[in-house]
Design a protein around this nucleic acid. Sequence first.
DNA 1: ATCCCGAGGG
DNA 2: CCCTCTGGAT
Length: 213
Amino acid sequence: MVAERLAVEYPEAVCELDHTNAFELLAATILSAQCTDARVNMVTPALFARYPDPQTLAGADPSELEEIVRSTGFFQTKAKNLIGMAQALLERYDGEVPTELDDLVTLPGVGRKTGNVLRTVVFDLPGLPVDTHVGRLSRRLGLTQQDDPVKVEHELESFLPPAAWGPFSLRTILHGRRVCDAKKPRCADCVLEDVCPSSSLPRRRGAANTTKA
DNA sequence: ATCCCGAGGG
DNA sequence: CCCTCTGGAT
């Protein structure tokens, strides 16, 4: 139900982190932690020009890399993770980005959210990235009561078909940014208002639909 | 003051 | 479970 409505509203939801291959998306997604994708897209042109592949990134000078990624926040950690990620790709994966989540999450700076982004965006494999938007909207919509992103991910995956995982995540993120933002959700402009238990709009008793998805 | 496509460590 | 890491936008 909710997933279908979002599909109608955002038919072409895409990942907005600029990239031309899996390695670039991996680096961009590592930088996206607690940072807007627009900000990430401001630094990645210089990043990819200076370090176009795992070989060059693995040998990067930490302070030079820190200056390039500084404006994305957590810059010391992110620079260290980017170098470690590139070294791990060379040492353990022949310089290629792995496709299995269990492999992806062994890379420095890569957790389930980042791994699932890679799977659904560049590998066309099942992956449900649960970021702050997906967690917040899933709770507001009554799709889960969980707070832990891993538990949210598993609960959503239990009633959504694998082919819908990625698109649901991308559309939920778009809806979270445009309409259902953290501070002041615009319920009057929301296509899910009639089925949302958290809607701030007046509504007659019992009008909210309780079925999931 | 609060949030942004989090992850790692204790 | 908690805490820390960080800058930019609103």
